[in-house]
Design a protein around this nucleic acid. Sequence first.
DNA 1: AAATCTATTTGTCTATGACAGAAAGAGAAA
DNA 2: TTTCTCTTTCTGTCATAGACAAATAGATTT
Lengths: 295, 295
Amino acid sequence: MSSTNTGLHIAAVERDTGIPKDTLRAWERRYGYPRPDRNERGERTYPPDQVSTLRLVKQLVDSGHRPNRVVGRDEEELRALLGAAQTTPGVGTEAAGIVDALRRQDLDHLQQKLRGLLMRQGLERFVIDSLAPLVATVGDAWATGRLAIHAEHLFSEQVDRQLSHAIAQLPMHTSRPPMLLGTLPGELHRLGLRMVEALFAVRGLPCVSVGPDVPVDQLVAACRGHQAAGVALSISACGATPTAARAVYDLRAQLPDDAALWLGGSGASRLKPRPPGGVEVFDSLSGLATHLDSY
Amino acid sequence: MSSTNTGLHIAAVERDTGIPKDTLRAWERRYGYPRPDRNERGERTYPPDQVSTLRLVKQLVDSGHRPNRVVGRDEEELRALLGAAQTTPGVGTEAAGIVDALRRQDLDHLQQKLRGLLMRQGLERFVIDSLAPLVATVGDAWATGRLAIHAEHLFSEQVDRQLSHAIAQLPMHTSRPPMLLGTLPGELHRLGLRMVEALFAVRGLPCVSVGPDVPVDQLVAACRGHQAAGVALSISACGATPTAARAVYDLRAQLPDDAALWLGGSGASRLKPRPPGGVEVFDSLSGLATHLDSY
DNA sequence: AAATCTATTTGTCTATGACAGAAAGAGAAA
DNA sequence: TTTCTCTTTCTGTCATAGACAAATAGATTT
């Protein structure tokens, strides 16, 4: 009875849009939107169209718009704003071809394209020049509805496999303390993590990935346990929440002073309360790469 | 300012323990525990020791205990309950060695052990005979507090990489419709998925993995889009929730009649409302393997 | 042993109020 | 024009207390 035509529960809307329940209620109170129906129990039930509108609103808010200005607006207006805001320039023809392959569900073509790029460019250039914009493009295509969620999942799976395969074949020096790689709780995107792992791998620099969705105290414990030189976190665009910012703050406070804390990913520079001192933020993968060269 | 030496914010406790804020407040109201301090603003601030106790409580509740019986108990009592609850008998000496390596944070040893087993046994026997019990053992060790969360994450990462690497090197027939592999929403464990993928790969049978945490409608869309022969889901022990059972029900209803629906993983046979007709449940990996032989 | 009924437990929702930190806007100084 | 400071508005999140259905346990009957 979870999905009927009557509408979605507030918890389901939080899960689907990423907007906390408290905020949903506050918006309704203040702006009169969203305007959910009520079930026989008096609970909010959100019509699917309002949910998809809310997803757009969330994107706009995340990208800097005030809720004031966008909550309650027509879906068409929101799309206009979104279109104006997003410009992913310089998307290579390769990227377009891959998105096309995804949309056509052409798995063979996708694998072949990825493998070809990797072989031609080498791991580092593949990651920085091809994969980074490609991931952004696919993310965009998903956000604007041009690509289904499952296609994005499939893309992630394929890329992850290619990268894992490549990384596994590179030797790693074990002479120095490793860097610990992970993502914060609630952050499930592992692709950014893998890309960072690749940058370490091509240099033979030691790193230990504990994967995505790791509690703060566990990051601290792992850092201690592995005697790591520091912790590097990957933060995706949709992971740049105030919760994440506080997690970074907590993490910095709990880590040893001599342990480094690096943030990367498209969400790293957009954390709303800025990271405290002692945290290095990398705007781009190439920035991280040059830093690793002199590391 | 969220975490000082005075204690953790309620949002931080939710993040670290996985217990929703509402539930934390309800427990405090009903059982008088946890008993947070208040900051100058009147907000709850949880001492770190209560947070770690809450983590134990969460584990016990997840494994079947009523909150009634465990909330507010001494940490020692909780550990006793955890230890008594689980006994995974017949763990091979290999498994014990690997758990030991994990506990010692000995990454090299872990990798070496895994690679050695894989090489000696071959992919199929490695997955069925070694990995399956090993995953169970590690899960147990985590549940009973003998292994930290980050160690389990690390284990998953390493195994995932080994498997991906092995799978990528096997050729796949593309002559027949593939099987779609995935997990339900909320189910984040990808290891089971990879193991199934390996069983397909050693036989050259085509399969497409869309990864974990896929909405039901997206599974349907992906099945249609890839013209798949069916959908195979991996359900972990902690994923056997009523929500998951409903998702299976919904999925069976929405899939084409001629599409197969397979369930595997330790949680598959424990779904509380039983799966409807037209769903095949595999109790063990070897069961799935023999089924694939005649597939 | 299995099934049915009843009482309790438990997570989650509602409502409204409050408040601090962030952002925006106004105005003064360089 | 630009830069800095101050004031006002905005906004997310926390608090309290009550309510209720779904799940569970325990008693009772078939």
